[in-house]
Amino acid sequence: MEITPSTPSLANSAATGAAKTLAQDFDTFLTLLTSQLQNQDPLEPMDSSEFTNQLVQFSSVEQAIQTNKNFETLIALTSANTTSAALDYLGRQVTYAGAESNLQGAGIDWSYDLDPDAVASSIAVKDATGKVVFAADGPEDGGTHQFAWNGKDNAGTDLPDGVYSLSVSAIDKAQNPVSADIFSTGTVTGVDVTATNPVLSIGGITQPLVSIREINQDS
């Protein structure tokens, strides 16, 4: 099993840097204000409205920075939860949205959802180069269907291990093409959590976590 770790850091976040800069600017502002108040002409006191406006601006910026900090914390917590969820998939057999799967001696299990209006269909298995290595007629109705391929071509010859994909074509009564959503099944052997969205390795096929449709009960 392979795990590629992530290294999130809040310490170097933009909000943290902005807060530090704001604190330095505010200290400078207070130093200047104190100096001007100490040296002002008692007979012509300074107009405090400008300083009041600047204080209000500092307060607004400080609140905005704090809001950004809260958002960053929330994002970090969400990312940690997503990473934890992704790691739970290691070693589990899953079904994911995608036509590609890896033949590893025992065949490949696919499923596909045909449009309810489908009245005829055909299936084809293609190798990594796009060449059709197996073809057959499919079901004549819509709904969910299973296809367990034994890894052989139409002549019954065993094909080498590697990546294969399923293609499903279907038509309705008017001979118009209709949709077919294909799903593959495999075991999760690795997890990459370095990106924003974790990526799973399923028998050598990389799939985003969001593509997982179910975890098989017998895994």
Results as ranks from 00 to 15, higher is better:
5 P>H: 05
60 S>A: 09
153 D>R: 03
103 L>V: 07
2 E>M: 09
88 D>I: 05
56 V>N: 10
219 S>M: 07
109 D>H: 10
8 P>A: 03
86 A>M: 05
53 N>A: 11
14 A>L: 09
153 D>E: 06
95 T>L: 04
52 T>P: 00
51 F>M: 06
27 D>W: 01
218 D>M: 04
47 D>C: 09
49 S>C: 04
194 T>I: 06
78 T>P: 00
177 P>W: 04
95 T>M: 10
104 Q>E: 11
185 T>K: 01
121 S>D: 12
196 T>K: 11
164 Y>L: 04
27 D>S: 14
65 I>E: 01
56 V>M: 08
115 D>S: 15
160 P>A: 13
141 D>W: 00
29 F>V: 06
191 V>C: 05
114 L>S: 03
58 F>R: 02
37 L>F: 10
70 N>Q: 11
127 D>F: 03
170 A>R: 04
70 N>G: 00
10 L>G: 08
72 E>P: 02
160 P>G: 12
193 V>F: 01
213 R>C: 00
76 A>G: 06
142 G>M: 03
98 G>N: 03
48 S>E: 15
34 T>Y: 11
195 A>F: 05
212 I>Y: 03
133 V>F: 03
67 T>Q: 15
159 L>E: 08
32 L>Q: 15
70 N>L: 09
56 V>W: 01
161 D>H: 10
94 V>W: 00
117 D>L: 13
99 A>N: 12
66 Q>E: 11
123 I>Y: 02
7 T>E: 10
201 S>D: 15
171 I>K: 12
122 S>Q: 14
216 N>A: 08
1 M>L: 09
152 K>M: 06
58 F>I: 00
22 L>K: 01
105 G>W: 07
144 T>K: 10
130 G>D: 09
13 S>R: 01
67 T>H: 12
213 R>I: 06
149 W>S: 04
82 T>D: 08
59 S>I: 00
17 G>F: 02
135 A>M: 10
181 D>I: 14
131 K>W: 00
34 T>R: 13
75 I>R: 02
93 Q>S: 08
175 Q>P: 07
150 N>E: 12
213 R>M: 13
171 I>F: 10
28 T>V: 09
37 L>S: 08
143 G>N: 10
84 S>D: 13
84 S>Q: 12
167 S>C: 07
47 D>Q: 12
20 K>P: 00
31 T>Q: 15
9 S>R: 06
213 R>F: 05
218 D>E: 14
63 Q>Y: 04
165 S>C: 07
80 A>D: 10
113 D>W: 10
203 G>A: 13
210 V>W: 11
73 T>C: 01
23 A>H: 02
45 P>M: 07
196 T>A: 14
134 F>L: 02
216 N>K: 15
134 F>V: 02
36 Q>I: 11
144 T>E: 08
187 T>V: 13
79 S>P: 00
45 P>L: 07
129 T>D: 13
11 A>P: 00
130 G>I: 04
96 Y>R: 02
102 N>Y: 06
44 E>N: 15
29 F>H: 05
134 F>W: 07
130 G>H: 07
71 F>I: 13
165 S>F: 05
31 T>K: 15
116 P>V: 05
33 L>R: 14
64 A>W: 07
186 G>Y: 01
